[in-house]
Each structure stands twice: as C-alpha cells, then as structure tokens.
Design a protein around this nucleic acid. Structure first.
Lengths: 225, 225
DNA sequence: ATTTATTTTTAGGTTAATCTAAATATTATT
DNA sequence: AATAATATTTAGATTAACCTAAAAATAAAT
C-alpha cells in the first residue's frame, strides 16, 4: 500500500509525470522548480523525500524519474482531476476554462469509493472537457490520435478535442467564435500570405481563424469527405 | 476579506462552533483538545493564533468564544459539509452513514462559485441526509422542531430527521429495520417494563424498537391524527 | 482557608515544507 | 583544456502544527 501522501507530494509526482512525457524521461531540478513555482533548493529537498519513499528514482545531478509506484499515484491524481472536471462542466455547468483550479483541489480528496461512484455517475467518460483522456483505475488511457488544425490538410474535418494552451484570452476568444470541445471543424482553405485558415464550425458558415489559433486547436481526424 | 485559512484553522472554528452551542458559550481548552484529538498544549497554541486573527475571543484561562468573523467561517464550512453530504447521498448513492469522512475533506474546497452551483444542482436543499439544517450563504438556517421518539406521546407521528449518535452499529441497525431519514414514524404504544416502543414505519406493520434506539431517533412532529 | 485535584499555560523540541545565500558540479564556450 | 555560464546541491533559517513535561492558575473538597 502507498502510505498516505501529502497534497504537495502528490503534486510533485503529477508535475514529474507531465514534464517527463508520461513518465518516460528524466526531469531536471530547475524545470520542476519552475513548474511547481518554487526554488530548486526546495525541489531538491522534496526529490530526496520521494526517492526515499521509492516513488521516484533520483541520483545527484541526474534528475528524477518516476518509478512504477510513483507513476501509479500520478495517474490516479490525473484520473481524479479529469473526472472532477467532467463533473464540473457536465453537471454544474461550469465553462471548460473555469474548472482547472477547482479540480486542482478536488483531485486530492482521498476516497477510492468516491471516485468509483463519481465515474459511474458521469457515465464512465473517457475524455475530460479539454479533450484529454481519463486514465482508468489501472492507469491505462486511450491513445488519442490528434493533430493541430494548422497541420491538417484542406478538405479534412474533425472534432475539437483539446486546446494546447491555458491562456485565458485564447479560451475566451474561442468561446466567442463558438468553438468548443466537441465542435466539428471542417477545414475549407488555407491562406498563404498569413497562414490563416477558413473553417466551418458545426456545419455553420465559413469563418477565419488565425494561424496562432489554428496551431493551438487540436482535433481528432475523421473520414475525409 | 478573510485572508485564507488552513484546513486546521477551519476545523478548529467548526469544533468551537459545535462545542459552544452554535457559538453562544465559551469553549474550554480540554474539551477542544478532546474534540480535535490533540493535546491541550496544541489547542493553546492554535487558540492564540485564531485570537490574533480576530476570529475568536480568548483570554487566558477563560476559554474561547467565536467572534462574528469566526462564526461566519464556521457556518460556511458547515454549509459546505452538509451540501456535499446531500450530493454524496442523492447523486452518488452513498448511504447516509458513509458520507461523513468524505464530506470532512470536501468541506475545505475553496470556491464560492462551486458551492453556489452545487447548491443549485441539488435543488437548494435545506437539510442534510442526517436531518441537520443547511445554513444559507449568510449563515442563517431554519430552526427545526424536533424531539426524540422517546419523548413523543403515544398516538403522535413524525418524520425521521436525525440520528443523535454516530455509532455505526446503530446506523446499521436502523438500516436493517428499514428506518431511514424521511421515514414516517407513528408511535403506537410504549411498554412500561423496559421503555421499548412500538411503532409503524411508513404505514408498515407494527415493530418494536428499544428505549435506546428511541432515545437516539429524532423526528419532526406533525399533526396528531 | 488550606489542601488537593483539575485545568491551563509555558518552555523547549520535532517534522514537513518552504526559503536565501553560498558552495559545488556539470555543461558550454572559447 | 581552461574558463565562463548554468544547474544543482548544501547549509542554515523560518513557519505551521504538532508533541512532552513541567509550571502556574483555577476550581473543588475537606
């Protein structure tokens, strides 16, 4: 059994998971410090603690890597975070750009039974409102095939599953144009002079989005037609 | 504004509220220590901190009293606790004797907006699954007129709104006889030799409950008939 | 009104999680 | 390969929340 971790320990594990490409690579002290909004010295302290608990591997000057125990914890936190996000958006009618901070708190509630029941209540979702996959109880999540709109060929279409950027301004902009998760986007044309792209949203009228917006908008590719 | 309290500080304020009869009386160090499962020395430390923050009044050797700011915090925690309990029972199908610990965690989630929306989602309930009233945003709650079944006269009936005891065995026992919150109880007769009481539950067949059970079962009185 | 018992407070220490500033490794540059 | 730049670690402190043990104040009992 995994003893009982503090919120901080859980957050470090989650950060390591994200910074290491799903636990593959090793994470260096400085980037962890930045991601946790703290100092390298503090990270160093914590990294030692986590290594002692066999949650991460750590060698001086070589950075941290998730061990299986630590990865399991990280994936469970992510699972909880994303399930709560679904709850907040689907049931409490939050907008998808408002839920992150609250989910950051809710993800630390300790009760496996609660999460089982929440999962059931939500109808066993596999994606959160940002289009990120929700790991199952064993930490396994569906691989999603996605591409940014800027990479997709003219004529193709797909479903918006993620926004590659936490910038509130972008999120609000998307809201204004009427793009949200689940929107079906058809790529009509690409302008050569500034890279902007014309699309239709949910079979609606033609609209333009800037290159920057297109780069940050991820869709799942579906059949060409 | 109330700066930003730690979970522990919030729990102390809640404990003081409960031990002081809704913030009326002053609470002594020892009983607070017992209620918080800690030592009098630790309580003494915390009580000083809270007094410095003007949340409670405190004079050496005279115990602690809630100040208006502290009472507001306490009532808000209680509001959140009870709303979450309703959510757990009504939406996630927990039994009412399973929700306390989880609500103890959820009550500390910080987001006024979350609670507003949760309240709406639940249909603005005024009572939690244990029959305790839920304070509104201003800390005001409906006065509930209640009595233990042992005090009620033969012939009267009412709705079960609370169990005066956290004992799991009692709660499970009630579950077995089929008594739950919202059950309508009719008091048929009282046995003189052992104080046990015959009742009917939701217009069902006559059943006996012991004096002890009757003492712990609180109902709201309705019209005699 | 003393003495005894209880309650409360002080004093001094511990642990987790943080910090700043200084020292030491590692990596990059000439 | 020596030096400069960057990254990492150590050393030493701080704060919240706790602890034990001893001292002091209050309340109860004779």
């Amino acid at each position: 059994m995994i003893s009982e971790l503090s919120f901080t320990e859980e957050n470090y594990l989650k950060a390591i998971y994200h910074l290491s490409n799903e636990g593959g690579e090793s994470v260096n002290t400085n980037s962890l410090a930045e991601s946790m909004s703290t100092t390298p010295a503090s990270v160093n302290d914590m990294v030692k603690r986590l290594a002692q608990k066999k949650l991460i591997g750590y060698q001086k000057y070589k950075g941290a890597t998730l061990l299986s125990k630590g990865k399991k914890v990280a994936l469970n936190i992510i699972r909880k975070h994303r399930l709560w996000e679904v709850f907040l958006v689907e049931k409490l009618e939050f907008k998808w750009d408002e839920v992150h901070e609250i989910a950051e708190q809710l993800e630390h509630i300790k009760s496996p039974n609660l999460i089982k029941r929440l999962d059931k209540f939500l109808g066993y979702p596999t994606m959160d409102p940002h289009g990120d996959p929700i790991p199952n109880e064993d930490g396994v999540m569906k691989e999603t095939v996605r591409a940014s709109i800027s990479e997709v060929e003219v004529g193709e279409s797909g479903i918006v599953v993620a926004v590659n950027n936490d910038d509130t301004l972008l999120l609000q902009h998307l809201d204004q144009i009427g793009i949200k998760l689940g929107s079906r986007i058809h790529i009509i044309d690409r302008m050569n002079f500034d890279g902007s792209i014309s699309i239709s949203i949910d079979e609606g009228p033609k609209q333009f989005i800037s290159k920057t917006v297109a780069e940050n908008l991820m869709i799942t590719l579906t059949d060409k037609k």
